[in-house]
Simulated assay, not measured.
Amino acid sequence: MTEPLRIGTRGSPLALAQAHQTRDRLAAAHPALAAPGAIEIVVIRTTGDRIQDRTLMEAGGKGLFTKEIEEDLAAARIDLAVHSMKDVPTWLPEGLEIVCMLPREDPRDAFISASGVRLDVLPQGAVVGTASLRRQAQILARRPDLRVIPFRGNVQTRLRKLADGEADATLLALAGLRRLGMADVATEILDPTVMLPAVAQGAIGIEIRSDDAATRALLAPLACAETMVRVSAERALLAVLDGSCRTPIGALARVDGDTLSLDGLVAAPDGRQVLRTAVHGPAAEAERLGSEAGAALKAQLPAGFFRA
Score class of each variant (00 low, 15 high):
Gly48Pro: 13
Thr9Glu: 06
Arg45Ile: 12
Ala167Leu: 07
Ala15Val: 05
Pro248Cys: 10
Ala299Asp: 13
Asp256Glu: 13
Leu301His: 08
Ile78Lys: 01
Ala214Ile: 03
Pro4Ser: 05
Ala15His: 06
Pro103Val: 13
Phe151Arg: 09
Asp258Val: 07
Thr46Ala: 13
Met195Pro: 00
Ala296Ser: 15
Ile39Ala: 08
Asp53Trp: 06
Thr66His: 03
Gly95Asn: 13
Arg104Tyr: 05
Glu207Phe: 03
Ile69Asn: 04
Leu171Cys: 11
Ala286Trp: 01
Ser210His: 07
Ile51Ser: 12
Ala225Gly: 01
Ala183Asp: 04
Arg134Asp: 04
Ala19Gln: 01
Gly264Lys: 08
Val199Ser: 00
Glu58Gly: 04
Glu226Asp: 12
Val121Asp: 12
Gly290Glu: 06
Leu260Trp: 03
Gly116Arg: 09
Leu262Tyr: 14
Thr9Arg: 04
Glu234Arg: 01
Arg108Leu: 06
Thr55Tyr: 05
Ala38Met: 11
Ser244Tyr: 11
Ala236Pro: 10
Arg45Cys: 03
Gly243Ser: 05
Ala303His: 07
Ala17Pro: 07
Ser244Ala: 15
Gly257His: 12
Gly37Val: 01
Val43Cys: 04
Ala183Met: 01
Gln52Leu: 11
Leu180Cys: 10
Ala225Leu: 12
Met182Arg: 10
Leu252Met: 15
Leu219Cys: 12
Leu196Pro: 02
Leu265Lys: 10
Thr90Met: 08
Glu3Asp: 15
Gly63Arg: 00
Glu3Val: 14
Leu218Met: 07
Ala167Gly: 05
Val155Ser: 15
Leu252Gly: 10
Arg235Tyr: 04
Ile41Asp: 04
Thr259Ser: 09
Gly294Cys: 09
Ala167Arg: 08
Ile98Gln: 10
Asp79Glu: 02
Met57Val: 15
